[in-house]
Write a protein that binds this DNA or RNA. Structure first.
Length: 225
DNA sequence: GCGACAG
DNA sequence: ATCTTGTCGC
């Protein structure tokens, strides 16, 4: 486990990403989809009141039942800058993960991993700091190119940065917009997509993300009361 | 230089 | 991310 350091400015943040990206592990298959535990993490903000709340929700990968959950409250310590999202979210997310009473298993987060200008998005960063297998599932293609995948659940196309496949546009429900999956740490792209499909049985987004989103929003409301 | 731009 | 009512559709 590496300690998180808040960079003083954007240039330093990019340098941190360039330094840590060498620690990403890409040659592990990761935990088998549908087994063990899967944990969703998400963050909600109130920039005016300077409050940020993160939530972590652990599910049984086979049943999608909630096994455990936690929240953590913090302060806004970094602005949103495309490409530097991790520095805004990670401190509070780490606190929420550390508050869990059980091992998280595979972590699923909003945003990207390898699909990033420096190949080190939120999912990669979170993986390197915790050592956990992590994947990223985003709701839009950011700056990357892709062809529209087929219309059925499970259809996918490569998400491209130039001619490099950095992730996939994956259809998780028939006739709905695809989600954008990329590897974070200690997981392969095929398995990342398999996990995403298993977790998105009933909705476009993974159940992990839906649960974590609902929890951090509720916790933020409570924190503002 | 201008626009685009995960959450 | 967040600001926000009604509304179309299963």
């Amino acid at each position: 486990m590496t300690t998180f350091r808040m960079p003083a400015d954007e240039a330093e943040a990019r340098a941190v990403q360039d330094a840590l990206r060498t620690r990403v592990v890409l040659d592990e298959p990761g935990p088998p989809p549908g087994t063990g535990r899967v944990t969703g993490v998400d963050v909600a903000y109130d920039d005016e009141r300077d409050v940020v709340v993160a939530a972590a929700v652990v599910l049984d990968a086979a049943t999608l039942d909630v096994v455990a959950e936690s929240t953590a409250r913090g302060r806004v310590t970094f602005p949103y800058v495309p490409g530097l999202l991790a520095f805004r979210e990670i401190p509070t997310v780490l606190a929420a993960l550390e508050a869990l009473p059980v091992d998280p298993g595979l972590v699923v987060c909003d945003g990207y991993g390898r699909a990033h200008p420096r190949r080190f998005g939120l999912a990669s960063h979170l993986g390197v700091l915790t050592g956990l297998p992590v994947i990223g599932v985003a709701k839009n293609p950011f700056t990357f190119r892709y062809e529209q995948p087929g219309p059925r659940r499970g259809d996918f196309t490569p998400l491209l940065d130039g001619d490099e496949e950095v992730g996939r546009a994956l259809r998780t429900q028939d006739a709905t917009k695809p989600v954008f999956v990329s590897v974070g740490h200690r997981t392969g792209l095929d398995d990342a997509c398999a996990h995403t499909l298993a977790l998105a049985r009933d909705f476009r987004q993974p159940e992990t993300t839906r649960r974590a989103d609902a929890l951090c929003r509720a916790a933020l409301r409570e924190a503002l009361t």
